[in-house]
Protein backbone atom coordinates (compact mmCIF):
# COMPACT_ATOMS: atom_id res chain seq x y z
CA UNK A 1 0.00 0.00 0.00
CA UNK A 2 1.47 3.37 -0.94
CA UNK A 3 1.29 6.29 1.45
CA UNK A 4 0.86 10.02 1.21
CA UNK A 5 1.64 12.55 3.94
CA UNK A 6 -0.22 15.85 4.17
CA UNK A 7 2.13 18.28 5.93
CA UNK A 8 0.58 19.79 9.05
CA UNK A 9 2.36 22.97 10.10
CA UNK A 10 -0.64 24.71 11.60
CA UNK A 11 -1.69 26.62 8.47
CA UNK A 12 -5.29 25.95 7.72
CA UNK A 13 -7.69 23.13 7.45
CA UNK A 14 -6.16 19.91 6.19
CA UNK A 15 -9.24 17.74 6.47
CA UNK A 16 -10.57 18.69 3.04
CA UNK A 17 -7.39 17.68 1.27
CA UNK A 18 -7.03 14.47 3.29
CA UNK A 19 -10.63 13.47 2.55
CA UNK A 20 -10.24 14.24 -1.14
CA UNK A 21 -7.01 12.20 -1.42
CA UNK A 22 -8.70 9.26 0.28
CA UNK A 23 -11.70 9.56 -2.02
CA UNK A 24 -9.48 9.80 -5.11
CA UNK A 25 -7.56 6.65 -4.20
CA UNK A 26 -9.23 4.52 -1.50
CA UNK A 27 -6.24 2.15 -1.35
CA UNK A 28 -3.71 4.81 -0.42
CA UNK A 29 -2.74 5.39 3.21
CA UNK A 30 -3.41 9.09 3.87
CA UNK A 31 -1.89 10.75 6.94
CA UNK A 32 -1.93 14.31 8.25
CA UNK A 33 1.53 14.66 9.81
CA UNK A 34 3.77 17.21 11.51
CA UNK A 35 6.61 14.83 12.44
CA UNK A 36 9.56 15.24 10.00
CA UNK A 37 10.47 11.55 10.26
CA UNK A 38 6.97 10.43 9.30
CA UNK A 39 6.87 12.88 6.42
CA UNK A 40 10.15 11.48 5.07
CA UNK A 41 8.79 7.94 5.32
CA UNK A 42 5.82 8.65 3.05
CA UNK A 43 5.92 7.76 -0.64
CA UNK A 44 4.43 11.10 -1.62
CA UNK A 45 3.94 14.41 0.14
CA UNK A 46 1.29 17.12 -0.14
CA UNK A 47 2.23 20.63 0.97
CA UNK A 48 -1.01 22.61 1.41
CA UNK A 49 -1.61 25.99 2.98
CA UNK A 50 -3.98 28.89 3.36
CA UNK A 51 -3.52 32.22 5.11
CA UNK A 52 -0.66 34.69 5.07
CA UNK A 53 2.81 33.86 3.73
CA UNK A 54 4.74 35.36 6.65
CA UNK A 55 2.88 33.15 9.16
CA UNK A 56 3.43 30.21 6.82
CA UNK A 57 7.20 30.75 6.57
CA UNK A 58 7.46 31.38 10.30
CA UNK A 59 5.61 28.13 11.01
CA UNK A 60 7.94 26.22 8.65
CA UNK A 61 10.99 27.65 10.41
CA UNK A 62 9.58 27.01 13.91
CA UNK A 63 8.72 23.40 13.11
CA UNK A 64 11.92 22.69 11.21
CA UNK A 65 9.86 21.61 8.22
CA UNK A 66 11.65 24.02 5.90
CA UNK A 67 14.53 21.53 5.53
CA UNK A 68 12.15 18.59 5.32
CA UNK A 69 10.37 20.09 2.31
CA UNK A 70 13.73 20.54 0.55
CA UNK A 71 14.57 16.91 1.22
CA UNK A 72 11.17 15.78 -0.01
CA UNK A 73 11.56 17.76 -3.24
CA UNK A 74 14.83 15.94 -3.91
CA UNK A 75 13.59 12.48 -3.10
CA UNK A 76 9.88 11.95 -3.83
CA UNK A 77 6.82 13.49 -5.50
CA UNK A 78 5.68 16.72 -3.85
CA UNK A 79 2.36 18.44 -4.55
CA UNK A 80 2.20 22.09 -3.47
CA UNK A 81 -1.26 23.64 -3.19
CA UNK A 82 -2.11 27.37 -3.00
CA UNK A 83 0.14 28.89 -0.31
CA UNK A 84 2.11 25.63 -0.48
CA UNK A 85 2.90 26.54 -4.08
CA UNK A 86 3.80 30.16 -3.33
CA UNK A 87 6.13 29.16 -0.49
CA UNK A 88 8.31 27.24 -2.97
CA UNK A 89 9.36 30.46 -4.76
CA UNK A 90 12.17 32.83 -3.77
CA UNK A 91 10.28 35.79 -2.39
CA UNK A 92 6.71 37.05 -1.97
CA UNK A 93 5.36 40.60 -2.08
CA UNK A 94 2.90 39.68 0.66
CA UNK A 95 3.45 41.21 4.14
CA UNK A 96 5.89 43.77 2.77
CA UNK A 97 8.39 41.31 1.41
CA UNK A 98 8.78 37.75 2.64
CA UNK A 99 11.64 35.36 1.93
CA UNK A 100 10.35 31.98 0.86
CA UNK A 101 11.95 28.55 0.35
CA UNK A 102 13.67 29.39 -2.96
CA UNK A 103 13.25 25.84 -4.27
CA UNK A 104 11.78 27.23 -7.49
CA UNK A 105 13.45 30.58 -8.36
CA UNK A 106 10.95 33.37 -8.89
CA UNK A 107 8.56 35.79 -7.21
CA UNK A 108 5.05 35.90 -5.81
CA UNK A 109 3.09 38.97 -6.92
CA UNK A 110 -0.16 40.64 -5.87
CA UNK A 111 -2.79 41.21 -8.56
CA UNK A 112 -2.70 44.81 -9.78
CA UNK A 113 -5.22 47.11 -8.05
CA UNK A 114 -7.61 48.11 -9.39
CA UNK A 115 -7.76 45.13 -11.69
CA UNK A 116 -9.76 45.89 -14.83
CA UNK A 117 -11.10 43.55 -17.51
CA UNK A 118 -11.18 44.34 -21.25
CA UNK A 119 -14.47 46.25 -20.81
CA UNK A 120 -13.02 48.38 -18.03
CA UNK A 121 -15.06 46.62 -15.32
CA UNK A 122 -13.36 46.09 -11.97
CA UNK A 123 -12.38 42.51 -11.22
CA UNK A 124 -12.70 41.44 -7.60
CA UNK A 125 -9.75 40.38 -5.46
CA UNK A 126 -9.43 37.68 -4.16
CA UNK A 127 -9.69 35.84 -7.48
CA UNK A 128 -12.38 33.51 -6.20
CA UNK A 129 -14.28 30.81 -8.05
CA UNK A 130 -13.97 28.48 -11.03
CA UNK A 131 -11.56 29.50 -13.75
CA UNK A 132 -10.07 27.71 -16.73
CA UNK A 133 -6.68 26.06 -16.57
CA UNK A 134 -4.77 25.94 -19.83
CA UNK A 135 -2.28 23.09 -19.83
CA UNK A 136 0.98 24.43 -21.30
CA UNK A 137 2.44 21.00 -21.88
CA UNK A 138 1.88 17.30 -21.30
CA UNK A 139 2.42 16.09 -17.78
CA UNK A 140 1.38 12.91 -15.94
CA UNK A 141 -0.72 15.06 -13.57
CA UNK A 142 -2.84 16.34 -16.45
CA UNK A 143 -3.76 12.81 -17.54
CA UNK A 144 -7.51 12.45 -18.28
CA UNK A 145 -8.15 16.12 -17.55
CA UNK A 146 -9.61 17.97 -20.55
CA UNK A 147 -7.75 21.05 -21.78
CA UNK A 148 -9.14 24.31 -20.27
CA UNK A 149 -11.06 22.56 -17.48
CA UNK A 150 -12.30 24.78 -14.67
CA UNK A 151 -10.73 24.48 -11.22
CA UNK A 152 -11.61 26.31 -7.99
CA UNK A 153 -9.35 29.24 -7.04
CA UNK A 154 -9.19 31.57 -4.07
CA UNK A 155 -6.10 33.80 -3.83
CA UNK A 156 -4.83 37.37 -4.14
CA UNK A 157 -1.21 36.54 -5.04
CA UNK A 158 0.21 34.49 -7.91
CA UNK A 159 3.62 33.03 -8.75
CA UNK A 160 5.98 34.30 -11.42
CA UNK A 161 8.79 31.76 -11.90
CA UNK A 162 12.07 33.01 -13.42
CA UNK A 163 12.29 30.03 -15.74
CA UNK A 164 9.35 29.75 -18.17
CA UNK A 165 10.06 26.08 -18.75
CA UNK A 166 8.63 25.19 -15.31
CA UNK A 167 5.19 26.57 -16.25
CA UNK A 168 2.73 23.69 -16.56
CA UNK A 169 -0.52 25.65 -16.66
CA UNK A 170 -1.83 29.19 -17.00
CA UNK A 171 -5.08 30.95 -16.13
CA UNK A 172 -6.29 34.41 -17.17
CA UNK A 173 -7.45 37.03 -14.66
CA UNK A 174 -7.47 39.00 -16.91
CA UNK A 175 -3.77 38.60 -17.79
CA UNK A 176 -2.35 35.08 -17.96
CA UNK A 177 -0.62 33.93 -14.76
CA UNK A 178 1.09 30.67 -13.79
CA UNK A 179 -1.45 28.45 -12.04
CA UNK A 180 0.57 25.23 -12.23
CA UNK A 181 4.28 24.57 -12.29
CA UNK A 182 6.40 21.45 -12.45
CA UNK A 183 10.08 20.67 -12.16
CA UNK A 184 11.57 17.34 -11.21
CA UNK A 185 9.59 15.85 -8.34
CA UNK A 186 7.57 19.01 -7.79
CA UNK A 187 4.12 19.75 -9.12
CA UNK A 188 2.44 22.80 -7.63
CA UNK A 189 -0.92 24.42 -8.25
CA UNK A 190 -2.52 27.71 -7.26
CA UNK A 191 -6.05 26.26 -7.43
CA UNK A 192 -7.58 23.79 -4.99
CA UNK A 193 -7.86 20.31 -6.52
CA UNK A 194 -9.57 19.12 -3.32
CA UNK A 195 -12.42 21.55 -4.05
CA UNK A 196 -12.54 21.18 -7.83
CA UNK A 197 -14.94 18.27 -8.08
CA UNK A 198 -14.24 15.58 -10.71
CA UNK A 199 -11.23 17.23 -12.41
CA UNK A 200 -9.67 17.96 -9.01
CA UNK A 201 -10.05 14.37 -7.85
CA UNK A 202 -8.56 13.21 -11.15
CA UNK A 203 -5.50 15.41 -10.57
CA UNK A 204 -5.08 14.00 -7.05
CA UNK A 205 -5.43 10.47 -8.38
CA UNK A 206 -2.80 11.26 -11.02
CA UNK A 207 -0.48 12.56 -8.30
CA UNK A 208 -0.96 9.40 -6.27
CA UNK A 209 0.29 7.28 -9.16
CA UNK A 210 3.11 9.62 -10.20
CA UNK A 211 6.71 8.72 -9.48
CA UNK A 212 8.20 12.14 -10.18
CA UNK A 213 9.67 13.60 -13.35
CA UNK A 214 7.70 15.07 -16.19
Amino acid sequence: MSSVAVIDYGMGNLHSIAKALQHASPDVHVQIVADPQLILQADRVVFPGVGAIRDCMQALVDTGLQEVIRQVAESRPLLGICLGMQALLTESEENGSTRCLNIVPGHVRHFATPLLDAQGEILKIPHMGWNQVHQQRDHPLWRNIPQDSRFYFVHSYYVQPDDDSVIAGVTEYPEPFTCALSCGNIFAVQFHPEKSQAVGLQLLQNFLSWDGGG
Binding site: K19, H23, G200
Partner: peptide
Amino acid sequence: VAGEVFIPLTVGGGIRTLDDIRRMLNAG
Protein backbone atom coordinates in the same frame (compact mmCIF):
# COMPACT_ATOMS: atom_id res chain seq x y z
CA VAL B 1 -21.10 16.03 3.17
CA ALA B 2 -17.40 16.94 3.12
CA GLY B 3 -16.50 13.26 2.82
CA GLU B 4 -18.21 12.93 -0.53
CA VAL B 5 -18.82 16.35 -2.06
CA PHE B 6 -15.64 18.03 -3.26
CA ILE B 7 -16.68 21.61 -3.90
CA PRO B 8 -16.49 24.54 -1.46
CA LEU B 9 -18.85 24.32 1.51
CA THR B 10 -19.97 27.30 3.59
CA VAL B 11 -21.73 27.09 6.94
CA GLY B 12 -23.61 30.00 8.47
CA GLY B 13 -25.93 30.42 11.41
CA GLY B 14 -24.88 30.61 15.03
CA ILE B 15 -21.19 31.32 14.35
CA ARG B 16 -20.22 33.50 17.32
CA THR B 17 -16.76 32.48 18.51
CA LEU B 18 -13.39 31.49 17.06
CA ASP B 19 -14.09 28.07 18.47
CA ASP B 20 -17.35 27.82 16.48
CA ILE B 21 -15.32 28.56 13.35
CA ARG B 22 -12.61 26.03 14.18
CA ARG B 23 -15.21 23.30 14.75
CA MET B 24 -16.86 23.91 11.38
CA LEU B 25 -13.55 24.09 9.49
CA ASN B 26 -12.36 20.90 11.14
CA ALA B 27 -15.61 19.22 10.18
CA GLY B 28 -14.80 20.03 6.54
